[in-house]
């Protein structure tokens, strides 16, 4: 998790992730093309992203392609969003149920469990 947050804590690296999200599987040259960074800077940022497992590198022939790996972001979602959001969602569901039951009796279940 430390490596992950450290990797995300830099605007240049977040830009690189955005670039890969828009167009996945790019070479270093392609990534450098539209960025205001030196090739060396991009290389260093990619190394940090790879260490955090946010970027996966695959070889295709002579080319080295960089892919965005979303799996660690899922971990952040589960650890830092999902867990904190769940009580509010449950509270909202209970409120809805109470209001619907109170207004119309206990027969309406529209929009309930799916």
């Amino acid at each position: 998790m430390d490596l992950l947050f450290k990797a995300l804590a830099d605007p240049g690296r977040r830009t690189l992730l955005d670039r890969l999200h828009a167009n996945d599987g790019q070479t270093l040259g392609e990534l450098c093309r539209h960025l205001d960074m030196t090739r060396q800077g991009v290389t260093q940022h990619l190394a940090v992203l790879e260490a955090a497992n946010l970027v996966a590198v695959q070889r295709r022939g002579r080319e080295k392609l960089h892919f965005l790996n979303p799996v660690p972001l899922q971990d952040i979602y589960e650890r830092w969003i999902c867990k904190f959001e769940r009580p509010r969602l449950v509270a909202l569901r209970d409120l809805k149920r109470r209001l619907e039951d109170g207004g119309r009796g206990a027969t309406r279940t529209k929009g309930g469990k799916r």
Partner: peptide, 14 residues
């Protein structure tokens, strides 16, 4: 070429 493909890569350490 890679651009004629759609590819997603997922990596996880277990």
């Amino acid at each position: 070429s890679a651009t004629d493909r759609s590819t997603f890569v997922y990596v996880i350490f277990i």
